[in-house]
Design a protein around this nucleic acid. Sequence first.
DNA 1: GCGTTTCAGTGAAGCGCTTCACTAGAATAT
DNA 2: ATATTCTAGTGAAGCGCTTCACTGAAACGC
Lengths: 330, 330
Amino acid sequence: MSTASYVLNGDHKRVSVETRDLILAAARDLNYRPNAIARSMARQKTAIIGVIITEIQNPLFAPVTDGVEQILRQEGYQLLLASAGDVTSEIAAIETFLAQQVDGIIIMSLSLHFSDAHLRQLQAEGIPLVVINRDLDVPEIDQIQFDDYGSGRMGTEHLLSLGHTRIGLICGPVAPVEVRRRSAIERRRGWTDALAAQALPTPETWVIHDEYLFEGGYRAAQALIARDEHLTAVFVASDMMAVGALKAFHEAALRVPQDMAVVTIGDPPFTAYTIPALTTLRMPIMESGQIAARVLVESLRGQRTAPECLTLGYELRIRESCGSQLPHAH
Amino acid sequence: MSTASYVLNGDHKRVSVETRDLILAAARDLNYRPNAIARSMARQKTAIIGVIITEIQNPLFAPVTDGVEQILRQEGYQLLLASAGDVTSEIAAIETFLAQQVDGIIIMSLSLHFSDAHLRQLQAEGIPLVVINRDLDVPEIDQIQFDDYGSGRMGTEHLLSLGHTRIGLICGPVAPVEVRRRSAIERRRGWTDALAAQALPTPETWVIHDEYLFEGGYRAAQALIARDEHLTAVFVASDMMAVGALKAFHEAALRVPQDMAVVTIGDPPFTAYTIPALTTLRMPIMESGQIAARVLVESLRGQRTAPECLTLGYELRIRESCGSQLPHAH
DNA sequence: GCGTTTCAGTGAAGCGCTTCACTAGAATAT
DNA sequence: ATATTCTAGTGAAGCGCTTCACTGAAACGC
């Protein structure tokens, strides 16, 4: 039995070629399938990674999961998936994963401010953990972030570079605390700083916060129009919101980009097919999943010394909605 | 030890209240966490379900996975996820799942015509299996389908009911065989039959097949416009394609719905925020995941006798692109 | 009061594998 | 020729739990 085990695990030194072939042949004849559970039991590791995401249907999660899965598959790990929309169910998911003896955990959250005592504890117990997109003040934990401040700044600066000075902001929720998104706060900060750097005003009335949804963008744009602040451009900090905003502008007979230039944030291909096509800051979502998985795998192999704390940048994709390609009057 | 096991598994008959409390207290003190691997080993089942999807990023998959996850979580099962874009990797994923001793498998494929010898074999080995959206000719296997023929028919009939007679079709790929989608074939059949039932013509030139993508719909609409067949309406058999088509129509200065009425198929919320909002046949995607999970769980509990073969219907959502709400001239 | 049933708890096998420690024999060294 | 090393293979413990078969004591029946 031990010989068979060595053969099936590819230990070439311990077994002669003849016995090896014999065993392999027997395995084939018997239709032998190794029992991963028993192996995990004996080895005290499972080659399974637990992945927790906040909501499966959120557009961020498919690409992240895809990225994670690509790398894990390639590295020989399996992926146990759970969704957890609040701290209680996150803790429950972690407990289940630990019971399941996962080798490591990846958590991809919305940029909500969750409490993280349980993550500290996980870390303390020595379970390899990588966290994506969470406002976490625990430097020992590997983290992958997005440069949300930079995105706010970059989007606004692009509009500034096109000559706009009255640039509004449609952004995700910043209050109340349960739904507040770090990304929304940071993007707003970026917008503010970009305008302030040019000594331009940033009045409260040029900003609308709403949910990161089509509906939210639609409502926000309507509200902004109603305020009649003579804006010539708006930075919409989410592609779903931008689609909603485009509709509201269209209904208000505001032409984009002539009457209202739009820059937004996102990754999905559909931003290229809106009317007009949206100029976006591409968010490296799938990449964040890949990187998280790689970092985790390196941890598991003991190839890491210091904790990772990466911030991924956005990339400007100029299309029609910002009006770059049009001569426009100011 | 056995007493502890009984207590922790909630067997109330075998243990006195005092010992139970003692054991529970000790478990708490020791921070005891049951080892699911060891339990699986002893019980010969894992409470893990393997889920295979074709491409994580395909818009069908997030809702399906969501539906599956909801039910499985509620029923106490874990979800092991793998993506497999072709038969070879599907077989590999199944092998891994079997090694992992999953209790059952759910496969959600694109409606490609995959070979299914390996599924028959799975079935023969007695592994509970539910397949969503695959063209499978194996009546013993539980299957969840979408009524694609019905959707083609229903969408076309809606346009007929609005007085259109020259109704084009933009549809998914039907050839070559590697990329051919059953859904495309069926929807075309529905379109043909709906028109034929009214003794209307269904010329080849009114139909364009392309990929189920924004790009595909864009190209297809351009091609259709170029043919100049004086169509007044088109059934676009995918919401992504419809978004692309809308853009092509817009660029060709064709007004939707006045010059070209559009009905499409899909579920995602974004169809309500296109310009104009798309009239769609809603595809019960998440529901298909829920149902698949329920069927599987029932199988695992031995509560099923006959194999399931469900076909889920589509539901018409009238919005702007079909022109229902407009008086229009014919 | 004796046999029977119930109750509470214990012992031990076994789930399928890995891996350390070991052995017998062959090869090599001195 | 003897000691040492190497090679190929074996034995057995053990991973952490479940569950069947069992036991001793208490409760019950007539």
